[in-house]
Write a protein that binds this DNA or RNA. Structure first.
Lengths: 155, 155
DNA sequence: TACCTTATATAAATGCACGATATATCCTCT
DNA sequence: AGAGGATATATCGTGCATTTATATAAGGTA
């Protein structure tokens, strides 16, 4: 079977092992108990708006989120009803709508971040110092990987 | 303000920074294009069954998945219709149903794993050798963290 | 203006989730 | 053994979210 191929030098990264580790981590991470009762798509839209740092046109959101355009229109309507986003006209295009995150909407992301940190902290405390250092050392690379992934989203 | 507290020695792990990095990575990772058209909950159940390595009772699935029991019954019915799981009686309890993953169901997880690996490989190739080593060095700690998290799931 | 394209909204149908409840089996106590 | 209660799953009816198809409105071009 040869489950641990030693063709790779052990200081290099086995992509398959990386995927496995991420899948394992996310299996736990995704199930972190959460306070808000918002759907996956809803949270994804709020997250996209927050990380974009500015308003996004409805049509552009249909590309990053995997929802149909009518579905997104209704989702934005619900979010607007709940005060998490605002629709504003696009000054440069009378047809378009710019979806703005409100302060309350931004707060959702922040509180989820705080919540995750609160749950992760005691677990991280139980790691060895070497393990904590190992993770700390990988953070810049993980962040870089995410940047690379977002740079060319469809390839 | 003080956004970068230097109270921590820089070889230790800032939990907040960790959460931020994971969120950033997952924002990209979650959106990796995927072939299957299965819902989030569906995939979660298949994943749980695969990582359990054996059949699970319907009621036990309602605990790991965040779905009501009737919802899970219907979900399993759909999965069974699609040939991804099988219902079998529990020999030790006539009321219970054991949900077994079929080979086709197992294949869903495998193909998703392969798909992710395929998408990640070219991005990882663009990291520096040091960055790859840093990630490789963090994988055991990440896996351990997931184990710790699964061990005491409710806080 | 007439026409085509793009951006968003509305409508009808479907699907997936839930709560309440029914049915079958297990367990315990007498 | 048999009654009563608890547990496991299934069914029914309802509500919300999402989809496809289509409508409305604005931009762009001849």
């Amino acid at each position: 079977m040869d489950p641990t191929p030693d063709a790779l030098p052990d200081d290099d990264l086995d992509v398959d092992a990386f995927t496995t580790a991420i899948e394992s981590f996310n299996r736990f991470y995704i199930r972190l108990p959460t306070l808000e009762k918002l759907s996956f798509t809803t949270l994804s839209v709020l997250d996209t708006l927050a990380s974009a740092g500015g308003p996004i046109r409805l049509t552009d959101l249909t590309r990053t989120e995997q929802v149909s355009q009518p579905g997104l229109t209704q989702l934005v309507t619900r979010l607007e009803r709940d005060g998490l986003v605002e629709r504003r006209p696009d000054p440069s295009d009378g047809r378009a709508v710019l979806v703005h995150l409100t302060e309350a909407g931004r707060q959702v992301g922040r509180s989820r971040h705080a919540d995750r940190t609160r749950h992760l902290a005691p677990l991280i405390a139980r790691l060895s110092p070497e393990q904590r250092r190992a993770i700390a050392g990988a953070l810049p690379a993980l962040t870089r990987l995410a940047e690379l992934g977002r740079a060319r989203p469809s390839g």
